[in-house]
């Protein structure tokens, strides 16, 4: 089926996410605006306006009532999902690169940038859904001993927080005790994305080292590896088929001509278990920065450096696709 093209952004996309029901799609970009869309037809519902810098990250809670965004204006903001009303602003020392609600929606983690003499950190705030104002006092701040964290996610039962770092390492935090229980070298380059399986027991990482990998959360043990020929910005897993989707590409400055084929701006499908590439999907004119799969597995969306969001609904053949074994 032809993908829907969402043209609501003027600058590169930084993150896109489906809500748990899969009917809504949230997109953020460097143009300071967060947009909300119906995923089935691409209709624009509204936007969250207020940030003064490029937006890096977005998430919403399980009931789709609250939205949190993080931006380069050193704030994270809480929004009423339906009306777009701003409820709260957290002021942080540096840009907020990644936000994520815990599985029980009680907490939110925020990964901050290392800049202007401030060390980066993973801030955890408690969320009180009974009132708009929120505590500005973090529950904990996790500091990395080595390279700065770039991404982080909640583990199964919210027991741990896993972070991915600039030098390609992973850390597993017992966050309540502010203790690192495990570290592992995951990649040769910066970790650009980390997405958990729905139960938080394993996750996928992507890196500029042109690989994506699958790790068991509890042990940080590498389970699978997907090799490509392009630096990767994002990786996601499909919930119903054993597939992973990877996105990335050479930045415009790295290639001599701007042919999209040469830039390798394709979403690549790999078999999750066999690690073989099974297909590609073209269409972006720049590197793919972010990928998300609809929670029911019926489609996926990609956001590119070209400012476009492409929403794909899988063809019926896709569901029939099966390896012989």
């Amino acid at each position: 089926m032809r993908p829907l093209l969402l043209q609501g952004h003027e600058r590169p996309l930084t993150q896109i996410k489906y809500n748990r029901d899969g009917d809504l799609l949230m997109t953020v970009s460097k143009d300071k605006v967060a947009n909300l869309w119906y995923s089935h037809n691409g209709e624009h519902i509204g936007c969250y306006i207020g940030h003064l810098g490029a937006l890096w990250t977005i998430d919403c809670n399980k009931t789709s009532t609250l939205v949190i965004t993080g931006a380069a204006d050193n704030t994270a903001r809480l929004w009423h999902a339906e009306t777009g009303r701003m409820l709260h602003t957290w002021d942080l020392p540096t840009a907020v690169k990644r936000v994520e609600f815990s599985h029980d929606d009680q907490y939110v983690l925020m990964v901050t940038e290392e800049r202007m003499g401030h060390k980066s950190g993973i801030y955890v705030f408690a969320i009180d859904i009974s009132r708009p104002e929120q505590s500005n006092e973090p529950v904990v701040i996790l500091r990395a001993s080595g390279a700065k964290p770039t991404v982080a996610a909640w583990s199964f039962l919210d027991k741990f927080i896993v972070s991915g770092h600039e030098d390609g390492t992973l850390s597993l935090y017992d966050w309540r005790n502010e203790e690192v229980v495990q570290t592992a070298k995951a990649h040769e380059g910066i970790i650009t994305d980390m997405q958990m399986w729905k139960d938080g027991t394993y996750f996928i990482t992507s890196s500029r080292d042109m690989t994506a990998r699958l790790f068991e959360t509890a042990t940080l043990e590498a389970m699978k590896e997907y090799k490509t020929d392009a630096p990767l910005n994002t990786a996601t897993m499909t919930p119903t088929q054993d597939l992973v989707i990877l996105g990335g590409g050479q930045a415009a400055s790295e290639v001599t001509t701007t042919s999209s084929r040469q830039g390798k701006f394709e979403s690549r499908f790999f078999h999750k278990i066999f690690e073989d590439e099974v297909g590609r999907s073209r269409g972006h004119f720049g590197p793919i920065n972010t990928l998300a799969v609809q929670p029911d597995g019926k489609g996926f969306a990609s956001g590119g450096e070209d400012g476009l969001v492409r929403v794909h609904h899988f063809d019926p053949e896709y569901f029939k696709f099966k390896y012989d074994y």
Binding site: F156, L157, K159, D199, T201, Y202, E216, A218, M223
Partner: peptide, 13 residues
Amino acid sequence: WREQIEAKLQAET
């Protein structure tokens, strides 16, 4: 592996 990890998760829950 999935069976083992899911059992563990069940127990922890």
